[in-house]
Lab assay of single mutants.
Amino acid sequence: HNLTITQGKLFFHYNPKLCLSEIHKMEEVSGTKGRQERNDIALKTNGDQASCENELLKFSYIRTSFDKILLRWEPYWPPDFRDLLGFMLFYKEAPYQNVTEFDGQDACGSNSWTVVDIDPPLRSNDPKSQNHPGWLMRGLKPWTQYAIFVKTLVTFSDERRTYGAKSDIIYVQTDATNPSVPLDPISVSNSSSQIILKWKPPSDPNGNITHYLVFWERQAEDSELFELDYCLKGLKLPSRTWSPPFESEDSQKHNQSEYEDSAGECCSCPKTDSQILKELEESSFRKTFEDYLHNVVFVPRKTSSGTGAEDPRPSRKRRSLGDVGNVTVAVPTVAAFPNTSSTSVPTSPEEHRPFEKVVNKESLVISGLRHFTGYRIELQACNQDTPEERCSVAAYVSARTMPEAKADDIVGPVTHEIFENNVVHLMWQEPKEPNGLIVLYEVSYRRYGDEELHLCVSRKHFALERGCRLRGLSPGNYSVRIRATSLAGNGSWTEPTYFYVTDYLDVPSNIA
């Protein structure tokens, strides 16, 4: 807008934040220059609390790290170098490059900038070799853009010569660093050979998330399962459950009422301010606690030095998902009996873990797994792929695949051998790939016309006998059925096997 004052003059007093240069501009645009008398524009009460600059400061050096910015700028000295009290560095987070010096300023003089007072450097006698002032900004957020400017702080001049310097606002972004852990990993099994893994992005990506790394490792069953005799009275049979499938998407929606109208769909109840505040506090606490764990609990591995020492970490090797089922080394339970199943799973520490690289999504279907087997899954978020990966501390989750139908069934015939004193040795093959492992066998036998009897055969007993022995049988026709019990439950009964026990007292003698 054009402003013209045809008559009258300007009068400025007691404006401590208004620089004289701005008042002189007002004289020019209003056409009143030359009308004012000496005392109409006070030299001592206008701009006496402001830094009124008329020179431009330029930054000469900028260096960044993930949490620091090192700045240096060209030296500046007023005509009387004693008038320079120091520099004021202003900075704040700036997602967009549209910041002005006066953003967030209120009537009390406060604003949204963080201000650092910096002492002037030592003055050199040689004007050509003056030290460049600077400042190291610490405690910054990774991968965050900051708006920065600097200006001088000078003393009051009796001659009211307006001098000083100020830089333009520059924008500097800190470097990326390792992201925080992925949030809320959930693993479920939808079949006997697959596990579905879902997660949420890290709360602090500290860069642009480029991919996720998912490692999985087959877990050995508890050692007590191999040692305890679950045929003993009072000892509860062990059981394991597989990871249940995901709930429906509708039930997972946030901010939804727990109660549904019987007449149909209901609208979600909005969260109160107290609920939102509580969630923010919980989120802040979780982030602080995660940072504490990362800094205190997890110790970084030592990389190899120039002395030739090897990095103890196993090298990563990509495998196809079809090879995942046989990740671990199978060892027989008892070496003397080769027909026992290889369900003991000690994992070799030198073995390469299978892994998958996930790009542009937060889910993965891990296939080719062994049925009813526990897996430990390790999830890392990465925001750099080359020249070397920059990934987060791992988040861990466990899951067990679903049982395989008929995996616990005894394959092959049940054979028998009759000894003296009416002892019958029953023999059968253990299931080759049971659900988890076989903890015991149930032997059901009966003599024709009598009630059915049951015998429990422990895992250890089966390994020693290759089956079991029935003792003290009365003469007669017998039928026997056997079924295995694994961590997933009972298998199917075998087809009945028949044998006849004679009275050993009636056996004919070869003595003449």
Rank of each mutant, 00 (worst) to 15 (best):
P205E: 04
N206S: 07
G207Q: 00
N208D: 15
I209N: 07
T210K: 01
L213V: 02
L213M: 09
V214I: 12
V214A: 06
V214M: 15
V214Q: 00
V214S: 05
F215S: 08
E217T: 15
R218W: 15
Q219P: 12
Q219N: 10
Q219Y: 13
D222S: 07
S223K: 13
L225E: 04
L225Q: 08
F226C: 09
F226W: 04
E227W: 14
E227Q: 09
L228C: 15
D229R: 06
D229Q: 11
L232I: 13
L232M: 08
K233P: 11
K233A: 10
G234C: 08
K236V: 05
K236Q: 03
L237S: 06
L237D: 04
P238C: 02
S239E: 06
R240L: 07
T241P: 15
T241M: 09
W242T: 07
S243Q: 07
P244E: 13
P244D: 11
P244R: 13
P244A: 13
P245W: 09
P245R: 05
F246D: 08
F246S: 09
F246P: 11
E247G: 12
E249P: 03
E249C: 06
D250V: 08
D250A: 11
D250R: 06
S251Q: 09
S251Y: 07
Q252G: 10
Q252L: 11
Q252P: 09
H254V: 11
Q256F: 15
Q256L: 12
S257Q: 13
S257C: 09
E258W: 12
Y259V: 14
E260P: 11
E260Y: 15
D261T: 12
S262Q: 08
S262M: 11
A263M: 13
A263Y: 07
A263K: 06
C266L: 08
C266P: 03
C267F: 04
S268D: 07
S268M: 14
C269V: 03
K271T: 06
T272R: 04
D273F: 14
D273C: 02
S274C: 11
Q275H: 03
Q275A: 09
I276M: 04
K278G: 03
K278N: 04
L280S: 05
E281P: 01
E281D: 11
E282Q: 11
E282M: 07
E282P: 02
S283G: 06
S284Y: 03
F285V: 04
F285Q: 02
R286K: 07
R286I: 03
T288H: 03
T288F: 07
T288Q: 15
T288V: 14
F289M: 02
F289L: 03
D291L: 03
D291V: 03
D291K: 01
Y292S: 03
H294R: 01
H294M: 10
F298S: 02
V299R: 13
P300Y: 04
R301L: 05
K302C: 05
T303I: 15
S304Y: 08
S304M: 13
S304P: 14
S305W: 04
T307I: 07
T307Q: 06
A309G: 12
A309L: 13
D311T: 07
P312D: 14
R313A: 09
R313N: 14
R313W: 07
P314Y: 14
S315C: 06
S315M: 09
R316A: 14
R316G: 05
R316F: 13
R316E: 08
K317R: 11
R318D: 11
R319S: 13
R319E: 14
R319K: 09
G322H: 08
G322Y: 07
D323T: 12
V324L: 09
V324T: 14
V324N: 12
N326K: 15
N326W: 10
V327D: 12
T328F: 13
V329A: 11
V329P: 11
A330D: 11
A330R: 11
V331S: 12
P332T: 09
V334L: 12
V334P: 12
A335R: 12
A335M: 14
F337A: 08
F337N: 01
F337M: 12
N339S: 11
N339Y: 07
T340N: 12
S341Q: 12
S341N: 09
S341K: 13
S341W: 14
S342D: 13
T343N: 09
S344I: 11
S344M: 10
S344N: 11
V345C: 13
T347M: 12
S348A: 15
P354R: 09
F355D: 03
E356N: 14
E356F: 12
E356I: 06
K357R: 10
V358M: 08
V358S: 03
V359G: 07
V359F: 09
V359P: 09
N360I: 08
N360Q: 13
N360G: 06
K361T: 11
K361N: 03
K361R: 06
K361G: 13
E362G: 03
E362L: 10
E362A: 12
S363L: 11
S363Q: 09
L364P: 01
I366A: 07
I366M: 11
I366E: 01
S367K: 10
G368I: 04
G368F: 14
G368W: 12
H371R: 13
H371T: 10
H371N: 08
H371M: 02
F372Y: 09
F372N: 04
T373M: 08
T373V: 15
T373P: 00
T373A: 14
G374M: 05
Y375T: 06
Y375W: 14
Y375Q: 04
R376D: 04
I377C: 10
I377Q: 03
I377P: 01
E378S: 08
L379I: 13
L379H: 01
Q380P: 01
Q380G: 15
A381R: 00
A381P: 00
N383F: 02
Q384R: 08
D385Y: 09
D385H: 15
T386K: 06
E388S: 04
E388I: 15
R390M: 04
S392L: 00
S392G: 03
S392V: 00
V393L: 11
A394H: 09
A394M: 11
A394I: 05
A395F: 05
Y396Q: 07
Y396D: 01
Y396P: 08
Y396H: 14
S398H: 03
T401G: 02
M402T: 05
M402A: 12
P403T: 05
P403A: 04
E404M: 12
E404L: 05
E404D: 12
K406W: 07
K406D: 10
A407K: 11
A407H: 15
A407S: 09
D408K: 00
D408H: 01
D409K: 11
D409Q: 09
D409A: 07
I410T: 03
I410H: 15
V411S: 08
G412P: 14
G412F: 09
P413M: 11
H416L: 09
E417A: 15
E417L: 09
I418T: 14
F419P: 01
E420N: 15
N421H: 10
V424M: 13
V424Q: 04
H425M: 03
L426M: 04
L426S: 03
M427L: 07
M427D: 03
M427H: 15
Q429S: 14
P431G: 04
P431H: 03
P431R: 02
P431A: 04
K432A: 07
K432P: 11
K432L: 09
E433I: 15
E433S: 15
E433K: 14
E433F: 15
P434V: 12
P434M: 08
N435D: 02
G436Q: 02
G436R: 15
I438N: 10
Y441G: 01
Y441M: 02
E442Q: 04
E442T: 03
Y445K: 02
Y445F: 03
R447V: 12
Y448C: 14
Y448E: 15
G449I: 13
G449K: 09
D450T: 10
H454M: 01
H454T: 10
L455V: 08
L455M: 13
L455S: 10
V457F: 12
V457S: 04
R459H: 10
K460M: 11
K460R: 13
K460E: 07
K460W: 11
F462L: 06
F462K: 09
F462M: 11
F462C: 02
A463M: 09
L464V: 06
E465I: 10
R466G: 02
R466L: 10
R466A: 08
C468D: 01
R469W: 05
R469L: 06
L470T: 04
R471D: 04
R471C: 11
P475W: 13
P475D: 05
N477H: 08
Y478P: 01
S479P: 00
S479I: 07
V480L: 06
V480P: 01
V480G: 02
R481V: 06
R481E: 15
I482R: 01
I482T: 03
I482S: 02
R483W: 01
A484E: 15
T485D: 13
T485I: 11
S486Y: 02
S486M: 00
S486R: 02
A488V: 11
A488M: 08
G489F: 06
G491H: 05
S492P: 11
S492V: 12
W493Y: 12
T494A: 06
E495Q: 09
P496L: 09
T497L: 11
T497S: 06
F499S: 01
Y500A: 11
V501N: 09
D503P: 15
Y504V: 05
Y504C: 03
D506S: 10
V507Q: 05
P508I: 14
S509T: 06
S509W: 11
